[in-house]
Design a protein around this nucleic acid. Sequence first.
DNA 1: TTGAAAGCGCTACCAG
DNA 2: CTGGTAGCGCTTTCAA
Lengths: 356, 356
Amino acid sequence: MPAEDQAAPQRGDVPSPGGRSRPTMQDVAAHAGVALKTVSRVVNGEPGVTPAMAERVRAAIDQLGFRRNDGARILRKGQTASIGLIMEDIGDPFYSALSRAIEDVARVHGHLLFTGSSDEDPARERELALAFCARRVDGLIVIPASDDHTYLLPEIAAGLATVFVDRPPRLIEADTVLSSNIDGARAGVAHLIRGGHRRIGYIGDAPRIYTSMLRHRGYREAMAQAGLRVDDSWVAMAAPSLGSVRLALRRMLARPAPVTALFCGNNRVSVAALRELRALAQAGEPGGVAFVGFDDFELADLLYPGVTVVAQDVARLGQGAAQLLFRRLAGDRGPAERIEVATQLIQRGSGEIPPG
Amino acid sequence: MPAEDQAAPQRGDVPSPGGRSRPTMQDVAAHAGVALKTVSRVVNGEPGVTPAMAERVRAAIDQLGFRRNDGARILRKGQTASIGLIMEDIGDPFYSALSRAIEDVARVHGHLLFTGSSDEDPARERELALAFCARRVDGLIVIPASDDHTYLLPEIAAGLATVFVDRPPRLIEADTVLSSNIDGARAGVAHLIRGGHRRIGYIGDAPRIYTSMLRHRGYREAMAQAGLRVDDSWVAMAAPSLGSVRLALRRMLARPAPVTALFCGNNRVSVAALRELRALAQAGEPGGVAFVGFDDFELADLLYPGVTVVAQDVARLGQGAAQLLFRRLAGDRGPAERIEVATQLIQRGSGEIPPG
DNA sequence: TTGAAAGCGCTACCAG
DNA sequence: CTGGTAGCGCTTTCAA
């Protein structure tokens, strides 16, 4: 260490929250008796360095435990080789699977991944997005919580690549990867109708959520297409809690002409409903309500009966989004794209229970 | 990839893969007719700027869509306000829950989170860790895959805070947060023994994995403590695949004196085993094997019978690790700590099936 | 209260 | 082949 006669504050006191500061290329250069630039060449594997010199530099690097500071590199080069991912909740299996699919693509492209959970809070989404932008991520993948993404316009104008997944952006144009929400919901409900059901309930997430709205629409369309009336009491949309689902379910089943089948708009609602149906069955209620849920979940096949679902292709959703993003980063300047990923009805038993 | 190092990168032409380059503080200063430093003061809310001047600067910021480049700030300040998290697979519910708990603590401390999946590959873990270090994360939280963490010593010496979760570090000292693996497994197996079981099988992950080894030990200890012999054919440890679990299970059940109960060492093994048990039952096999699994999972209560588990407190695991990390970042220089988080036996039915 | 200048650690661009 | 020098965009120090 060269003795800097700066007002070098106390050494053993509380230096930042770190230990000693890290060696720089300059330190390595001094140690090896070469110029800074030569070290840079060795570190980056650039040609034009004699093996002997390279060896000397490498020895100094090892001795000092030098590791290039990518922050400085990034500042110079402008590209951070990192992308940001904003979702509702990384703890939710759906998003964590999505996250993994995205990470795998990012890895292939040598990019690191920032992740953040918005908890469906627009302010939090914005905060995260801007924090990532301040870190100058090359791209952003967003599962939107906000209904106004204009705050991203300056970033996008400045070169930020942005892809929206699961739900479209609001008030701006951008690449988007979605599941076939309407078609999927329609297929699920149509399946119940084919099974002979006429009174089918729908429980979904809050209507302000895009996917929730579309799946509800799919439900309505399937019913209409079959010429079936929908009683208002059959439909419930709210943030999924055991309480709200319980209420909705009891209401649907308490009618003189109760629903004989139930379609649920997402994962968490499905689980809450299944839990409640189980409780009702154990309480000696008639039961035998047919069930189809939107979105697959682990162990759906192990429940009894197996849970029939409209499965989303989460891996393809994530891959599609990430690939689109990296195409943009590679220079693609075409108009905003919109990819729709098909869903698939998986029959496991619960959706094949006959009415009555 | 775009032609990067080819032609001379013209400034106004096709700047990297971006749009126009972003405004800097200098640009804002010029636009507002003030000095760079004044802009800095406004952006950082430092005192000593007249309201009028601050307003002028703010207007310029808005007009130009300026956003501070944190990369430069970090380079100057030395702290990145980010931490790295390396786990086996962010797509696995256990790790994603852990991840979420950590993110929440990080958020409170104003830190961003890099996440990466090692896939249980030591080389990949190392690669991720060093990539994060090159980005100068302030701290690292690692669920180890490697059996040699000495590669982190230079980083730690240079001030990197490091906490290991779920498994301890190898060949270095560092803060660690673990579940009570031995105690938990012992409790689970003892529960089966109390239920009257004498022949109890164990299926776990590969023995090289720390948690797997300890839970296996807990199983052995519980058996020994009860004076029960363990037949070699009752124990199987391998990467959890449906095939390997199937084989192990059939072997245990095919004996003249088959096991009457099964203890599984983790989540994925449990699910594979339950799936296989279900298949056997449907094939008309005797069935009625009691079951206890290490680690809870969603819907365990909805299966029939409900699945008895030794639950880990994932949230506390994550919180503990993150809090420890931030205590280090706050300057705590005490010796490496080791926190053990208790597990809890949750009886749901499968573990209470009597033998025979 | 404001501003000029000196870096943070690295890469780009030219000299030797 | 090797080395100097000028920044990347910001904070820090110190002078006006």
